[in-house]
């Protein structure tokens, strides 16, 4: 347990370091994006004096490091600044609501695709080279090959246009919260499931196959343990380890990078917010979104690593000893 704690602290340290570096990179990237913020705010018809005055007023002429310092010290205390496009509106007031929506979407998708793909992956792995395996593998490959904007359109056509079970566009009427409109989550979540299913179930299938061919499964079988017991008690835990890593690696994407899916369905989440921010050159908003996505990526990777070492006694008890 002590080692686990030590590892956690070490990982936390490197996480903070990553975030500091990343925040600077994000700041720099947005900095070199074409377009002048002051010009953006005032519009094309603004006079040069007005632009210069605004630049001076907003401190845009200050040296890079000074501006970075100002931004990051705001971020640390939770002040992400104001949006430029929606003038005077603080980013905090828009961003967190959208983040909430995104989290609900991600959680829904997660609850659907994780058990589904692990179950079918295990099933395919156990029935290797049999018809069950072929069908699952084919389906997995097919969904993997279709990009989300294609499978999403198919979903919309079938479930929204034809069957009319769900709304075509995921909008929340003004004045209502997402909880009153949970049906808008379903189609985007299914779309994500289609993307992830093939990927994770194939991963689970191949790790299941390699575990089932391992010496200790042979030993367990030849101890006379029934097949079902061998699969669930001996194979599953070991076969889940690589899958957990893969799922963890995709958590960042799931919680913050759903730009395509959200845009396609018009879902009011962080992905579509980022999209709007880029389209309107809303620099502080872009910075805030990208930084948040970075945080989600790093934290989810860290959680995965810790979970992995908890599940794997070889790491849990031994550390990195060679």
């Amino acid at each position: 347990m002590k080692r686990l704690m030590e590892m956690f602290l070490r990982r936390l340290g490197s996480l903070l370091a990553t975030l500091v570096v990343m925040s600077f990179v994000i700041f720099l990237l947005v900095e070199i994006m074409p377009g002048d913020v002051a010009q953006m705010i005032l519009g094309q018809s603004a006079t040069e004096e007005a632009v210069a005055a605004l630049r001076e007023a907003r401190g845009l002429n200050d040296p890079l490091l000074e501006r970075y310092g100002r931004w990051i010290s705001g971020v640390v205390v939770g002040d992400l600044g104001d949006s430029i496009y929606m003038q005077g509106v603080s980013i905090n007031s828009i961003l967190w609501r959208k983040v909430g929506h995104s989290i609900i979407l991600a959680m829904t998708a997660f609850i659907i695709f994780v058990p589904l793909s692990i179950f079918f992956g295990v099933l395919a792995g156990v029935k290797e080279k049999k018809p069950t395996d072929s069908i699952i593998s084919f389906f997995g490959l097919a969904t993997m090959a279709l990009p989300e904007f294609v499978s999403g359109v198919i979903l919309i056509t079938v479930f929204a246009v034809q069957l009319k079970w769900f709304p075509i566009v995921s909008v929340i009427p003004i004045g209502e919260s997402i909880w009153q409109n949970l049906n808008i989550v379903v189609l985007p979540a299914l779309s994500i499931t289609l993307v992830m299913f093939g990927y994770i179930s194939r991963m689970q299938r191949s790790s299941m196959i390699s575990v089932m061919n391992s010496d200790y499964i042979r030993a367990a079988t030849l101890k006379g343990m029934p097949r079902r017991y061998v699969i669930f008690r001996h194979a599953l835990k070991n076969a889940m380890l690589p899958t957990i890593t893969i799922i963890g690696m995709n958590m960042g994407w799931l919680f913050g990078g759903l730009v395509v899916v959200e845009t396609l369905f018009g879902f009011p989440g962080m992905g579509s917010l980022l999209m709007t921010a880029i389209k309107t050159r809303d620099v502080p908003l872009i910075e805030a979104c990208v930084l948040l996505i970075t945080v989600i990526y790093s934290v989810s990777t860290m959680i995965t690593d810790i979970m992995y070492s908890y599940l794997n006694p070889r790491i849990r008890y031994q550390g990195g000893q060679k």
Binding site: Y216, R218, A219, L222, H234, K237, N312, R314
Partner: peptide, 14 residues
């Protein structure tokens, strides 16, 4: 039955 490689014949996670 007893196998050649004891290390891989025991389940690492149990």
């Amino acid at each position: 039955m007893v196998f050649q490689n004891p290390y891989s014949s025991l389940n690492p996670s149990l």
